[in-house]
Design a binder for these strands. Sequence first.
DNA 1: CTGTTTGCAAACGATTTGCATGCCA
DNA 2: TGGCATGCAAATCGTTTGCAAACAG
Lengths: 150, 150
Amino acid sequence: MAQLRTDDHAELLRRYGLRATGQRLAIVGALQELGHATIEQLLEASQAVSPTVQLSTVYRVLETLGAHGLVSHTHLLGATKTYQLSTHANHAHLVCRGCGSVTELADDVARRFTADISRVHGFDVDFGHLSVFGRCADCVAKDLDESPSA
Amino acid sequence: MAQLRTDDHAELLRRYGLRATGQRLAIVGALQELGHATIEQLLEASQAVSPTVQLSTVYRVLETLGAHGLVSHTHLLGATKTYQLSTHANHAHLVCRGCGSVTELADDVARRFTADISRVHGFDVDFGHLSVFGRCADCVAKDLDESPSA
DNA sequence: CTGTTTGCAAACGATTTGCATGCCA
DNA sequence: TGGCATGCAAATCGTTTGCAAACAG
């Protein structure tokens, strides 16, 4: 997995016509490191690098980067919005309501699903934003333990 | 499609051990009529029947009904939470980012998808809460019109 | 009659905004 | 240097809560 460094992040931002400020680099770095993260997580992680970063800045930066297609967001658990670099967005998520774990959906399953939808409904699925809720294998197993038999 | 009347709603509520107040009947009626609706839509629709209904009441009623399994909710557009009667919840939604339209996903497609996920990931999909974002056939067609060729 | 539900208004948390200053290009 | 980005604090939005009155059963 190609790990971009800070320098590259700066370049990336400029390529999109955006200024490479310390705060933005910190936030992009945090996004890259975390894969997907909530506002709170991003605030914390970017403050570790650039202590002056403020909550409102995180909001503004994410909005700006989002408008330029660099960042996308998904609703994972409940109303929690999580953000991710678009380069990291090309897969759907399986979100477990039991333990909160987030797994990437296997590509071939996703592809078949979107193909089916396209064929049946003519609907063009926005892949990166797809979140599937349910219970992961572990939690299903736990559920069975707790209600042993009928 | 079996259309329940107000009397039946009252009965339904009581069957769940809930009091059948005018406000609740109005809200359940609105849910039934709208299929799925936001808090705002529900407020408006239920006020048409029972003008005293208040926003906080809508919130409280939905929470109560939800706790009893009568109502479920999904995230459709953006952060917008929409609510629906559980009897109406057994299908996934295709949500168009272009025009905001919401379509029900064909059963067989959904079934195949959940079966795939179960087989590959051991993950048990929460069906009624599945929302798929993207662009509907109409909006895809419009998109093509607007960017005719390269 | 009794306990639940509602109206109302105030509290609350998350997100957004205005303005002066700071910093990148 | 000029203008976009940020810090800070206040405003705003959606949602929740406490309390007394109204209502269902």
